[in-house]
Amino acid sequence: MKSVQQIIQEKEIWAGLNHPGISVEEADIVVYGIPFDGGVSFRAGAKDAPKALREITYTIDPTTEGFESIEGLKILDLGDAEGENREEIFQKVEQVAYDCVKAGKLMTFIGGDHSTTIPILWGIDKALEEPFGIIHIDAHLDLCDEMGGDRLSHGSTERRALELKNIPDTESIYFLGIRSAELEEVKFLQENKINLLGTREIRHLGVEKALEKVKEKMARFNKIYITIDIDALDPAYAPGTGTPQFGGLDSREMLDLLYGLFELPVIGFDVVEVAPGLEESKIALFAARKIITECWGHHWRKGTNVYGKYKKSF
């Protein structure tokens, strides 16, 4: 069985777009895995996603569902954040996020549970001297101050984000797909101004109208980070996750939302909470692969001229 280090040295992964050995400055997109699920409150298994996801990227071509070629993209897979404890792993993630922002490269992180987004946001916050926005696509709010005594839990991601110097207020985050809340979070919603469209509202409005609302609120930011919990999808489309919630987005809604959201100044995104071992067919894993490659297509499209030559977009 190949190790992660062996896999990331192969050009064939990521639809043949991987360029092992190039620098962050030479890359268009940087990928980093975070095989950590020590912040979960229920079922574990998300730590296995980064390696499992890479292993299903050999067989796809560098094309989008819109029949576009993205073969000119240079992907640099840095491997996984490894360490003996959470502090060491999170420090490495924070540094990679910092480096990507400073270099102006689109970052793609593969969790791991949703707590792994916390150090990504730390790195972005450290690198920037201006406010940034967050779009949180999830079944859950992740606004708990702590879970089981853990302030870095997967249910505390956006509560920690609100403590950052470059997140000016509670309306700096837009929540999409939410359909579950802790009692603590219900109180927080009642006491604070929150941008939120649950799955029911998105279905009622339609994706186009939902996107109009998101863009109106997030237009004040020059840089936006998107975090995607796979459980935003209904369990029918992503059963392999630790805390599935009935009544979620369907696959078409997810892809169409991302298509529109990438019209905003997105500097990076993550996909978290995919737990390959929790379902035999690996449906959630394949959903994550599709989400990632389509997001790369959106980024490519923003930086493409009429001759199809890629240019840096931020």
Results as ranks from 00 to 15, higher is better:
1 M>R: 08
1 M>C: 09
3 S>K: 14
3 S>R: 12
5 Q>C: 05
8 I>N: 10
16 G>M: 07
16 G>K: 08
17 L>F: 10
18 N>R: 01
22 I>F: 00
25 E>Y: 06
28 D>E: 08
29 I>P: 07
31 V>I: 14
32 Y>F: 13
35 P>F: 05
36 F>G: 00
42 F>R: 11
43 R>G: 06
46 A>E: 12
48 D>F: 05
51 K>M: 00
52 A>I: 12
58 Y>A: 11
59 T>D: 06
60 I>K: 04
63 T>Q: 09
63 T>I: 12
64 T>A: 12
64 T>I: 03
65 E>G: 13
66 G>Q: 15
66 G>H: 15
67 F>E: 11
67 F>L: 15
69 S>W: 15
71 E>Y: 10
72 G>S: 11
73 L>E: 07
76 L>S: 13
78 L>W: 08
79 G>L: 15
80 D>P: 06
85 N>A: 10
85 N>I: 08
86 R>N: 13
91 Q>P: 13
96 V>S: 09
98 Y>T: 03
98 Y>G: 00
99 D>S: 06
101 V>W: 01
102 K>M: 13
102 K>I: 11
104 G>D: 03
104 G>P: 04
105 K>R: 13
105 K>L: 12
107 M>A: 02
107 M>H: 04
107 M>Y: 11
110 I>A: 06
113 D>N: 04
113 D>E: 03
114 H>V: 06
121 L>C: 04
124 I>V: 02
125 D>A: 03
126 K>R: 02
127 A>F: 07
130 E>C: 10
131 P>M: 00
132 F>K: 02
132 F>L: 13
134 I>M: 00
134 I>P: 05
135 I>P: 00
137 I>V: 14
138 D>K: 00
143 L>H: 12
146 E>W: 09
146 E>N: 03
146 E>M: 04
149 G>N: 04
150 D>G: 01
151 R>W: 01
153 S>T: 08
156 S>E: 00
156 S>G: 14
161 A>G: 00
163 E>Q: 10
164 L>N: 06
169 D>K: 09
170 T>A: 06
171 E>N: 02
171 E>M: 07
174 Y>F: 15
175 F>M: 12
175 F>V: 03
180 S>F: 12
182 E>L: 10
185 E>F: 15
190 Q>A: 13
192 N>C: 02
198 G>C: 11
199 T>W: 14
201 E>I: 11
205 L>P: 01
206 G>C: 00
207 V>Q: 02
211 L>E: 03
213 K>G: 12
215 K>W: 13
218 M>Y: 13
218 M>G: 05
219 A>G: 12
220 R>M: 15
222 N>Q: 01
223 K>A: 02
224 I>L: 07
234 D>W: 11
238 A>V: 05
242 G>Q: 02
246 F>P: 10
246 F>H: 08
251 S>M: 06
252 R>Q: 09
252 R>D: 15
254 M>N: 05
261 L>P: 04
264 L>S: 10
265 P>S: 07
271 V>K: 02
273 E>Q: 07
273 E>I: 15
274 V>M: 10
276 P>A: 07
276 P>I: 08
276 P>M: 10
282 K>E: 04
283 I>E: 07
283 I>C: 06
284 A>S: 15
286 F>S: 08
288 A>D: 11
288 A>W: 03
289 R>T: 14
295 C>F: 14
296 W>V: 03
297 G>K: 02
298 H>C: 05
299 H>C: 09
302 K>M: 04
304 T>N: 15
307 Y>C: 14
311 K>R: 04
314 F>I: 15
